[in-house]
């Protein structure tokens, strides 16, 4: 499955220090890699990689992605040659002109996640729903990908 590395969020005591060490890793990686442009985009530069889950049952795949605070029209879901792509842009909430910012931890900007589906799906029956900040995509398997019961008669 083609998925960008993601770290489980924990109760960070010093979130700012966490980010500093990310920055140091970033610099280390830059000097270690002979072709930094060709290696995978790092977490820090990639920005937001929303967490997602993939489930499978006998009829379909279900993908759930955490995308809090989005507008429905800012989420794009596409399917191309077995690759499911979720992308979009989170815009900052309209805030007052004279407001002072004390903390700004929430991500703002574009994101993209891609999932390679293990088996073919029926593209025109794919459904996506967005509720409570969770995007749920249901992808019914195509007929040939479903498990079949074959009755063998023995004479």
């Amino acid at each position: 499955m083609n998925i960008v590395k993601w770290q489980t969020p924990t109760l960070a005591n010093w979130p700012s220090l966490g980010r500093l060490s990310d920055l140091r890793d970033e610099i280390d990686r830059f000097f270690d890699s002979p072709f930094p442009g060709l290696t995978r985009t790092s977490d820090l530069l990639a920005g937001w990689t929303p967490a997602l889950d993939v489930y499978e049952d006998k009829d379909s795949y279900t993908v759930k992605a955490e995308l809090p605070g989005m507008k429905k029209e800012d989420i794009e879901v596409s399917l191309h040659e077995g690759l499911l792509s979720i992308s979009g842009e989170r815009k900052s909430e309209a805030k007052k002109e004279d407001a002072e910012v004390y903390r700004s931890e929430r991500f703002v900007g574009r994101f993209q996640r891609t999932v390679t589906l293990p088996a073919p799906v029926t593209a025109d029956k794919v459904k996506a729903a967005y509720k409570d900040g969770i995007l749920t995509i249901t992808l019914p398997k195509s007929e040939e990908a479903k498990p079949k019961q074959i009755n063998v008669s023995v004479n």
């Binding site: 605070g69 007052k96 004279d98 900040g133």
Partner: peptide, 22 residues
């Protein structure tokens, strides 16, 4: 899990926004 937050202060008060998907 500690949610990511934004905190703003204006002359009328404070606003806290917190990401809690689900």
């Amino acid at each position: 899990v500690m949610p990511d937050v934004n905190i703003y202060e204006s002359k009328d008060g404070y606003t806290i926004e917190a990401d809690m998907p689900g």
